[in-house]
C-alpha cells in the first residue's frame, strides 16, 4: 500500500510517500488513520483526530468507512486551496 502526503502534512510528517503493509485488521480509511497515528510522534500530531484532513483512495475522495486493500494508493492531505 502506498501512502502519499501533501502540502502541510508532507512537511509535518517529513516525507511525501511511504510504502506500508498494514496489519489485516486495517480494513477502512478510519482504521488506517488510527494505525498511522501510532507510527511516530509526527504522525500522531499531524494525523491527530482533530486534524481537518481529506483522504483519497486510488485518486478518488473517500470517507472514513471507505474500504482499503493492499495495492491501494491512499493520499492524505489538508483541504485544498487552488484556483
Amino acid at each position: 500500500m502506498t501512502i502519499l502526503y501533501f502540502a502541510r502534512l508532507r512537511e509535518e510528517i517529513g516525507t511525501s510517500e511511504e510504502k506500508l503493509d498494514p496489519p489485516a485488521g486495517v480494513k477502512t480509511v478510519a482504521d488506517l488513520m488510527k494505525w498511522l497515528r501510532g507510527r511516530s510522534e509526527d504522525h500522531a500530531h499531524a494525523l491527530g483526530p482533530g486534524a481537518l484532513l481529506k483522504v483519497a483512495v486510488n485518486q478518488t475522495y473517500a470517507e472514513p468507512g471507505t474500504p482499503i486493500s493492499a495495492g491501494d494508493e491512499i493520499a492524505i492531505f489538508p483541504p485544498v486551496t487552488g484556483g
Partner: peptide, 23 residues
C-alpha cells in the same frame, strides 16, 4: 468546484515569513 475539489495547495512567501494558505 475547482476551489474545493481539485487537489492544489498554495504556499505564500513574503517579508521573512511563509505559510500554507488556509481553506
Amino acid at each position: 468546484f475547482l476551489k474545493t475539489d481539485a487537489p492544489f495547495w498554495k504556499k505564500e512567501q513574503g517579508a521573512g515569513r511563509e505559510g500554507w494558505v488556509e481553506a
